[in-house]
Design a protein around this nucleic acid. Structure first.
Ligand SMILES: [Zn+2]
Ligand SMILES: [Zn+2]
Ligand SMILES: [Zn+2]
Ligand SMILES: [Zn+2]
Lengths: 148, 148
DNA sequence: TAGATAAATGGAAATGATTTCTATTTATCA
DNA sequence: TGATAAATAGAAATCATTTCCATTTATCTA
């Protein structure tokens, strides 16, 4: 997509087929994806694509704010291409990795009070809801819901 | 400390010297600690203590809600012995790992709105502020503050 | 449009945190 | 005090992620 071309240009990143393919895959999935999953998807279309390349690019894209790195209880790396350009947070389905963007953040008021009270500097914050999306919720019985 | 003895009993966990020592170390440090750091501290006092034992116990204690597992941008495992028994969140110093407890959480209102809007089930949440504590802030020059 | 050049890539190998395995030890409880 | 299940040590395995380096490629300029 030409849009991805422009995104890379805007950030002074070389426009390579690999990068475009990575952006393509991420942007068409409303899911968290690990580098390995991205890689497996890429291999369907491209003969040669190395896993380290995927790792490197995901990190690079994330550093440039093009995609976001998301915290997950399993501590693996997950990336997500956010539709919203504004500051926001995520609801992550623990079962299927689906992501919904939450356009809510009241961090500023907490932050100010923390900085005043503790005389410290807040540099970043994490707000994330984990749970089951509507699809997965429908599939689960009450029983299996308990051992999550 | 007898208090730790009681904590283990209450959770039906065998009271072993290793567990008591782990709780002792965590509770006297207002810092996030990795399993390895806990282990190195333990080795000063105990001749024999295996790293896997530390990992297992920290996880066990965490599962029982006795200590908490904290998210960190570096994705390593960190644990913390919370003073507060009520639900709360953390301010974590990215430089020295010091932790301050934040007795603020407005998740319920977000949660309700998310569950209604997305027809989903919220199972857990992460709210965490990362930054520099007052000590570390004082040490940093403006310049070095930028590349954090 | 053809080099020059710095950046990107692939593949193999290294790393390093975390987990597993198993034989031995230990806490608990009757 | 002895039975029993749980905890432990130490070594080894696992596995996600990173590093290394030789080769390729995108970009820029003449
Ligand atoms: Zn789902
Ligand atoms: Zn926010
Ligand atoms: Zn600090
Ligand atoms: Zn909360």
């Amino acid at each position: 997509m030409h849009e991805h071309f422009m995104i890379l240009k805007r950030h002074n990143l070389k426009v390579t087929p690999k990068r475009l393919a990575i952006l393509e895959i991420l942007s068409t999935n409303q899911c968290l994806m690990t580098p390995e999953v991205v890689w497996k998807n890429l291999k369907v279309k491209m003969k040669k694509i190395g896993l380290p390349t995927v790792y490197r690019n995901l990190e690079e894209l994330s550093k440039n704010g093009i995609i976001s790195k998301v915290f997950h209880p399993d501590r693996k790396l997950y990336y997500y291409f956010c539709k919203s350009l504004q500051h926001h947070h995520h609801f992550v389905c623990l079962s299927c990795q689906r992501v919904e963007e939450i356009n809510f953040c009241n961090i500023e008021e907490i932050q100010r009070s923390i900085e005043d009270k503790l005389n410290s500097k807040v540099l970043s914050h994490i707000i994330q809801l984990n749970g089951l999306c509507s699809n997965c919720l429908a599939k689960k019985s009450e029983r299996s819901l308990k051992d999550l």
